[in-house]
Design a binder for these strands. Structure first.
Lengths: 188, 188
DNA sequence: TTGCGCACTGACCGTACGTTCAGCGAGCTG
DNA sequence: CAGCTCGCTGAACGTACGGTCAGTGCGCAA
């Protein structure tokens, strides 16, 4: 009746703890400066071990990011469903994001790197395929909600997609600012 | 009556063309992936020559960024003074940014990197001292304008600083989106 | 208890980058 | 024209990283 063998459990635990470590190191040093050596030390394993679970550095970063952003978006979406009016929905989304970043303070640095295009063209294409869709979906969903609100006459008519983008980025900035000001006093 | 010696002129020209080259390469490859070799080739000089004008890579990137962002902010500020009402001012600022990015398409990638904290703690402190103040001043100035508009009763009362941040980032997102969609068709 | 399989290790390799510096040659001086 | 100056060069160096693989020892089956 065991749905997972012992090996699978151990394997999943390793994958998890390596991803967690990667998240923390990226949060500390930034995307480009996070080395495999340091991630391995943070996870308490040898460098070689990482390569038993991830093909290369790119895959590790990619998977780490995917896991984290999926969690974040799930929570934001759920929070938005709860809200009734448009304003409530937006408030709920911001609160959800803020609490997520509070719990995973390390992640928010990784998150900021999201929209920074780096590396060669091939790498950028991978990034586009894997990260952007989720982001775009998220913006698109807000655009849909905005359109509903427009139909209901709750707000003025506007280019819904552009307005959604404006709101998402604008509130991101505020969330980032809040997380920043909370974490910076601990430094000095 | 020559205010600048021949050597000074040549020197300034070199500094300029190296910075221009750096901007182009960073725009193509991203902040971290831009190598001294490629910047040198782009500028049409040898790698060693760069070190005659800049202490190291960090100084080159820093100076390059400073030069560019100073130009951008100058233009945005000037555009905002022209506008009469609040809406006019914001529209003017966005138009100014958009046209600046159109002229210096390369720069906007560098600009996106702005808020991405990278490297060790020491490097981050330098970044904070040199780039953030200009950004914060810019946001602060908008906050001031917003307060004026509030006093005039043009808009509802609000936390002016937070609202300014919201507007700056929100419009940035739209500008970035526009520049992106203009440049991507050329790729495929 | 003994032997074996396999997850794990970390010294090692190739590579690529930032940085240096001995030497070169264009142009100025006498 | 000879000699010197000095901005410039690019091969060479040290370093640090991603990625590899022969070796190790722990746990399990017999």
């Amino acid at each position: 009746m065991t749905s997972k063998s012992k090996e699978e459990v151990v394997s999943e635990y390793r994958v998890q703890s390596i991803q967690d470590a990667a998240m923390r190191v990226i949060a500390r040093k930034g995307m480009a400066a996070a080395t495999m050596q340091e991630i391995a030390e943070e996870a308490g394993v040898a460098k070689g071990t990482i390569y038993l679970y991830f093909r290369d550095r790119d895959e590790l970063v990619e998977k780490t990011f995917e896991t984290a952003i999926t969690q974040l978006i799930d929570r934001v979406e759920k929070a938005m469903i709860e809200g009734k009016s448009l304003e409530e929905k937006i408030r709920a989304a911001m609160t959800a994001k803020l609490s997520f970043f509070r719990e995973n303070r390390e992640f928010f640095r990784l998150y900021i790197s999201l929209r920074l295009p780096e590396g060669d063209a091939q790498q950028q294409r991978r990034h586009k395929r894997n990260c952007e869709p989720q982001y775009r979906d998220s913006v698109g969903r807000l655009a849909g909600i905005l359109e509903e609100a427009m139909d209901r006459g709750e707000i003025r008519r506007f280019d819904s997609h552009r307005l959604a983008l404006f709101i998402v980025e604008g509130s991101n900035a505020i969330v980032v600012e809040r997380v920043m000001e909370e974490s910076s006093p601990s430094e000095e």
